[in-house]
């Protein structure tokens, strides 16, 4: 088996929307030509602001949404274009953890039932084998096996997210795609779930695609990080150099304004507050999509779209004028 577990090649996802007041329909590009690879056992973090397409990308990867163009390859075999039946054996190998532990668990079923569902769907074994596996999963994620017959509303947010994780691990997947798994949790509980995910990765040899808007959380969990803006990757590379010396002006601005504890150990930095809002994806700026808000934009940026190119040391950046260090 190759070292690369997931290969995403030039994936684009368009949504067709009705234009209010103008009649007709138009295309919104939610994800535009995203390519990357994830190696077995690593954690790739994808960070970006709301509407940057990171959740759509996650859904395209696990084939919950069909891609408009491009390919997704899992363990060397293409997933895009497969029928539902053909996808099924691959599905058990890649599972999703959702953001909202309140909305992603069926309130009318016991938690044991919820965790057992993927096992039943994939014909894991007899009823007692499934029961034993559910108990094992509960222990694995640090939940009390005496609470198996309870309903989701009886659990706190952190416990519910553990249930969601148990469900995603039920079939021993190789890849776990976590879409904002801790953003709905209080900070003390968030830390517990992040530590749990790290332990599970070590114990089970999991590969994570970790999607979040919180820069600190992404750095904490990721080996490599990709930064998205308006549906595209603008920078990607190993976490430490990316955070310590960002190449793209957007990454630099994002990091400079992320609130940080002033405990005497934090780096000194200059805040770069970029003006305006993220543009409407239906009306993407010409050239580099970031140019209207970019503090260092020049004429070329308005016309010519930069492509994601190698910048040495495993780093990639899509900028005509990357920051020099």
């Amino acid at each position: 088996m190759s070292d690369v577990i997931l290969r995403v090649d030039n994936v684009t996802k368009n949504f067709s929307v009705r234009r209010p007041g103008r009649g007709g329909r138009s295309q919104i590009q939610a994800v535009g030509g995203v390519s990357f690879e994830i190696r077995r056992g690593e954690t790739l973090g994808i960070v970006g602001e709301s509407g940057c397409g990171k959740s759509t990308l996650a859904r395209c990867i696990v084939q919950l949404l069909p891609v408009t163009s491009g390919t997704v390859e899992f363990n060397g075999s293409p997933l895009t274009g497969l029928s539902r039946r053909q996808l099924r054996p691959h599905r058990r190998e890649m599972q999703l953890v959702f953001q909202d532990p309140f909305a992603s668990l069926n309130p009318r079923r016991t938690v044991a039932d919820i965790v057992a569902e993927p096992l039943r769907v994939h014909r894991f074994g007899t009823r007692s084998e499934i029961e034993a596996r559910v108990r094992e999963l509960f222990t694995l994620v640090g939940l009390d096996v005496n609470s198996l017959v309870r309903y989701p509303h009886e659990f706190s947010g952190g416990q519910r997210q553990r249930i969601g994780i148990a469900r995603s691990l039920a079939l021993n997947p190789q890849l776990v795609v976590a879409d904002e798994p801790v953003s709905a949790l209080d900070v003390s509980v968030q830390a517990q779930v992040l530590n749990l995910m790290a332990e599970l990765q070590e114990k089970l040899g999991l590969t994570y695609l970790f999607i979040a808007h919180d820069l600190g959380v992404v750095r904490h969990v990721s080996d490599r990080v990709g930064v998205m803006y308006l549906g595209e990757l603008v920078e990607m590379g190993p976490a430490d150099p990316l955070y310590d010396a960002p190449l793209h002006p957007y990454t630099e601005a994002l990091l400079s304004v992320a609130p940080e504890l002033d405990d005497g150990r934090a780096r000194t930095r200059e805040r770069i507050v970029i003006s305006g809002d993220v543009p409407d994806p239906a009306d993407k700026p010409s050239g580099c999509a970031f140019h209207p808000r970019c503090p260092v934009a020049q004429d070329r940026c308005r016309i010519e779209k930069p492509s994601l190119i190698h910048a040495g040391d495993g780093r990639l950046v899509a900028c005509h004028f990357p920051r020099r260090r």
């Binding site: 830390a191 904490h220 430490d240 990091l255 940080e260 934090a266 780096r267």
Partner: peptide, 15 residues
């Protein structure tokens, strides 16, 4: 419990 931007801690302190 706050993940830091400037360095990676092995484990977060939890309550």
């Amino acid at each position: 419990a706050v993940p830091r931007l400037d360095s990676k801690r092995a484990r977060l302190v939890t309550i």
